[in-house]
Amino acid sequence: MSETILEAEGLTKEFAGFTAVNNVNLAVRRGTIHALIGPNGAGKTTVFNLLTKFLTPSAGVIRYKGRDITAMRPADVARLGIVRSFQISAVFPHLTVRENVRIALQRELGTSFHFWRSEKSLARLHGRADELIAAVGLAGYEDVLAVELPYGRKRALEIATTLALDPEMLLLDEPMAGLGHEDIDRISALIKKVAADRTVLMVEHNLSVVATLSDTITVLTRGRVLAEGDYETVSNNPEVREAYMGTGHA
């Protein structure tokens, strides 16, 4: 078994008397695709926001590569190499596809506060940006405004932008939400490709996607971990089956 890269211990989040996430332990192993599933309201997205520091946990510890990141701010977590996506596709709508990717690349130049410098100085990033755009199958769309892309391609653009940071770990919040069949196949293939040398943690509703992609699955209900294991183990777990009854999935 490979080493743990991201670890949560006793993770808890309370919202004014309501416990959304209750004492969750989670260990994501390096180089795997780990899926977080569960019925609506199970606290998946909350766990996600806690891990990326978009929410502050009420209790518990989060460790990334053995380092305690519980008190860190979201931008700092991103700089450590944990980059997240969002449920609603996260692009910059009125920037072009190339500008979207370039925003992610430009931070490395260290000139992001230089308001006196011409943006022409960013042109040297275009080669790398176009490579990333081509890698997700968006070649030819470089100068299109992101808002004009069909939904599936926005998702691809979002992945290209995320990859521009060369993160060690990707957190994908429902990457398939709102996608049509052909897009699901394309984005699945993309995630698989991307995960070859990275670690992926994703929240996903589409169980066939979860079944084909994930190495490990954690099932949440009512803010607690119900079961964990590979698809085989989890799908045969009677409690999991019961939790999913009536939601039309399992």
């Binding site: 996260a90 692009v91 920037l95 500008e99 230089h114 308001f115 410098r117 943006e119």
Partner: peptide, 16 residues
């Protein structure tokens, strides 16, 4: 400027 580009990104989608 490079700074202006980041500003536009913030205006468009701050969480991202």
């Amino acid at each position: 400027s490079p700074f202006g580009n980041v500003l536009k990104a913030i205006r468009e989608n701050e969480p991202r």
